[in-house]
Design a protein around this nucleic acid. Structure first.
Lengths: 205, 205, 205, 205
DNA sequence: GATGAATGAGGTTTCATTCAT
DNA sequence: TATGAATGAAACCTCATTCAT
């Protein structure tokens, strides 16, 4: 009976976890589309086909919900980059190019508001800001490690590491603004050009 | 008497112009600090020490006010770049470097919040989006002309013109986020590094 | 087997009774602390370490739960007064003094929040108000009988019975507000003074 | 013109003051009828025939509005007692009786929820609780001074000053509960009896 | 018996906008 | 010109209640 009960608990827990995931995903989508302020809980609830009140069963408030959503989104994003096969093998050049390409494709296709995404209200409490800062750090590390390896191996040459990474991130988060309205092959070409352009930042003279 | 009246009108006009400027500057400041949605007309009015209602005497609504604020700020910014002496003479390389340097310095020192400022709601009507797009275009032209000249003369080499300019703009608008907290020589060095990094985008292989 | 079943039933009943008691006590505590409106079923459930839904297994709604809580507490209180030995023998004066003393001591020490507890919403339906009124009546009878006996025997003199009792009750229910923060001998003295003061209400000219 | 402007300002100020008074009076009425929690801003607005939002033009929130309302109400109440002619002349006995009578009449007729009135949410910030405590003090002083004078002159005899005053206040704030449903002469008689009963608290043996 | 989940009505609060003066 | 006042829609949030499991 203890086992059955434990099984129950486990199942309930899993169901709850799944529900929370759903909410977080939906919220991330919306915030990714419009930014924090432009998304209301009503919007989130409607897309989930539940009522506003239900959201409060899982989260104590909008800020917490959105913070968690951003975190989930950021984690997923980083994980996808980390587990990208092409980013794990070959020359630093190939790997960096693969990372940049994947990154802008995710940004453009899934999070059109990527730029706004991490621009959280300046009134948020320290805890939430910290959590988002950590997210960025982990994200940054993916690119930084490839960059430093390329530098070590002599493949890359940069003025300085930090501004190089910053330029890359800035350009990538703006990508949806430039390429969001393009479609199909045209968009592909634009993204490729963008990646090639960014690769110049590490090119050896 | 006609003259006197004309003088009156002129003075009234000037006063009105000055008032509008004040409002626009203040609005730009606030929207830059907090983003469009997080600024209320009450906030703008309070910082100006007038009442909300007064703003409606000068602007038909919040959107128009903010659009105008963005426009003014953008115009000023572009004008300063256009009239920069160092951007008018010498090699394309020198001129581009001068423009980039001036741009990030204005960004960091005078409009630290520009990034948020241009992040207008995606729900805005076509007219206002167009006006802001035009602004960007004029701004873009300053850099574009130097870039194309450099390409024509063989000084520069790029993957494509558009993504190159886009990367530059993106990086420059993020500059305050990265360098805003640095001071003095440290900040100078960071900005120089940023400019040098961006110059790689046009470097010949 | 019938016996076993009966035993089962009995045990189940007892367990149920105990559970209800727990709920009632907790509810009374909370409502006493914060007042009816400021207590949510969530609060009650949390302090009991169960879920909100469970409360509905025992009570049809918040009003009924609170009514029952008030009733239980009131019944206990009255019973303790009724069974007080010193209130059963001796002169009416001695007995009344014993009752008053016991009452304020219970109030101050055990139900410091009684004042708020009986302040039920004025919008409650007749049935519940009636039940609480009856509670008060039974409670009142304890004091009333001693008072009338004292009047009959000539020990007491009052302007009228009702206002006299009302004053006593009012003062006693406020006692925790006045004496709640005092400690030890100081509190004892304060309570004695209060009782002596109330005894003046029945003093013969 | 300065005068005219000053006149304008003065008028506007007065009008504003009047409006605030109206709001406060209405809120006090409602809180007096039902208590803090049971009154919604919608209720207040409706009785004033304005919309909820308007209240926020004058007060930053419900707590502040209600605190101010209670304060106004308390001030008025105390002022009416202080300026009661019969409370200013004659023997201490006559004056105390007049005060008690006036007090219960105001309570019963104008603030049926007098008992709830000062029972503010325990979650309120210190400032607001302090202000209400001060209110009580001023109120208490009216009765205390007559009582001590009567003691000095030998007209009164009490067990102790504090419990005597406390009993009086407690009884008076409960009065609406007892006499609220009575009408006309019957109510008058009940109130008189109540006052006479309370006078026994100061009677000389 | 008890729980987790969901609902919907109602509360407080914010704010762009309008308008008489 | 500018202000004070008011509005109403929409936001965030709370909570008694219901119900399948």
């Amino acid at each position: 009976m203890a086992d059955a009960a434990a099984g129950q608990v486990g199942r309930v827990q899993r169901r709850r976890g799944r529900r929370i995931r759903e909410i977080l995903t939906t919220a991330a989508e919306l915030v990714g589309e419009r930014g924090y302020d432009a998304v209301s809980l009503e919007d989130v609830a409607e897309r989930l086909d539940v009522t506003k009140g239900s959201l409060y069963y899982y989260f104590p408030g909008k800020d917490e919900l959105v913070t968690a959503a951003i975190e989930t989104l950021g984690d997923d994003w980083t994980s996808r980059l980390e587990s990208l096969p092409a980013a794990r093998e070959g020359s630093a050049t190939r790997r960096l190019r693969a990372l940049l390409g994947e990154h802008v494709r995710i940004a453009v296709r899934e999070y059109p508001a990527a730029l706004r995404l991490f621009l959280v209200p300046s009134t948020w409490p320290a805890e939430q800001r910290t959590r988002i800062k950590e997210l960025r750090l982990r994200h940054d590390r993916v690119f930084r490690s490839v960059l430093t390896e390329g530098l070590a191996s002599g493949e890359f040459a940069v003025v300085a590491v930090d501004p190089t990474l910053q330029c890359m991130h800035a350009a990538m988060s703006q990508a949806p603004v430039w390429c969001g309205e393009l479609r199909g092959a045209e968009q592909e070409r634009a993204l490729d050009e963008l990646v090639d352009t960014l690769m110049k930042l590490v090119a050896r003279g």
